[in-house]
Design a protein around this nucleic acid. Structure first.
Lengths: 196, 196
DNA sequence: CGTCTATTTGAATGTACTCAAAAGCGGTGG
DNA sequence: CCACCGCTTTTGAGTACATTCAAATAGACG
């Protein structure tokens, strides 16, 4: 149950068995069915969640009711609204499970305890937030500078396991195009590269 | 010379006079003329810089030679490529002064010293990186979900002092439109709201 | 097999881009 | 003081990429 998350953090810090136990003891395991809303816009995000198995998305609904997906998360990824979590202020986002999903959740209180008892974890969380920043910076550059087709290809490259698992209109909402246009992109790709 | 930066950090942490001196002693003051390139893509970013006076931009040049501005920084803002600085890896960005600019620069070595001697500063730098993340998240949502006109208005709102100081093609490059289109947006705004 | 949801297709439209040319603006030197 | 130069902004025509809307088709599931 905890092997993966321990491997995940061990890529950046080395932990004793005691520290591992402290860590895993502060995690709350949660199993949720498809379509479970884990965070609702307007609420305060009370978790950083590690995905053991399954898939989720974090998205914003704009004033016109349009959804924009900020990111997907699959196995071995973390998902949270860090802005809301850290500053304990209302979120602008929804987080929803897209499949039956197994999560390990860390509450603000338990995170504080963890950082207090095992300060090394500061590093992990700094790295997590830095990664989010770099990822979204790159995405902004692509959104501004590249064509929808290029962004689609980048998406498939970044989330190779996602396309078959989620409906295409979700991918459209991530890429920043209409669902119909994803269909056109796919047609073009199919005709360009029939059998490699 | 240090009043502003001390006010800046004091909004988030309380410092003794000793700690203030430790901090300011680790900063390197630099005065650069307009068009100075402080960081070149491919190089490793060796500073986090606080702007005392002046104005700078951080931008990416894509494979077609097109520039995309990631952000502007004016008085009382920090500027750096955190990805490159933290992981000491080559940057994808250029940082350039847009005016004669006075900076206070913190090197990686001095930052380490600072964090070691005054661990409270962890908080400041975590907040800085979090702010970058939230800012760019919002910008991505605008870029995907809003019209160029709305993005222009948001820009003017966010950087009220910038538009007269920098050429409009830089603003275009931030908004993600052609310089010509900024011109059209301005014309539309002028005709819509002549005298309020 | 029928129903519901997701995807594809096509026509008409729109937003923003490219390219080229003209106009504006600020500084410098005769 | 004015003329000229270089740089920035504006304007306009033609174009491209992506959208909207509506309808047809395909897939999944009971």
């Amino acid at each position: 149950m905890f092997e993966n998350i321990l491997l995940n953090v061990s890529r950046n810090i080395t932990l004793t068995d005691d520290e591992k136990n402290t860590f895993t003891g502060l995690l709350e395991r949660r199993m949720v069915p498809r379509k479970t809303v884990l965070l609702r816009a307007g609420d305060i995000c009370q978790f950083e969640a590690y995905i053991v198995k399954g898939c989720a998305r974090i998205y914003h609904v704009d004033i016109n009711g349009c959804e924009i997906i900020l990111s997907f998360a699959v196995e071995d990824w973390w998902i949270s609204d860090l802005a809301s979590f850290h500053e304990q202020k209302p979120s602008m986002f929804f987080i929803e499970a897209l499949e039956k999903t197994e999560l390990l959740m860390l509450s603000p209180k338990n995170k504080q305890r963890l950082l207090h008892e095992v300060p090394k974890f500061e590093r992990i969380f700094r790295i997590l937030i830095e990664r989010s920043l770099y990822t979204i910076q790159n995405r902004l550059l692509s959104t501004i500078g590249k064509s929808a087709m290029d962004r689609y290809l980048e998406f498939v490259d970044m989330y190779p396991t996602v396309p078959p698992r989620v409906p295409q209109y979700h991918i459209a909402s991530y890429i920043g195009v209409s669902p119909e246009f994803i269909s056109i992109i796919r047609r073009r790709l199919a005709s360009k590269a029939p059998i490699p």
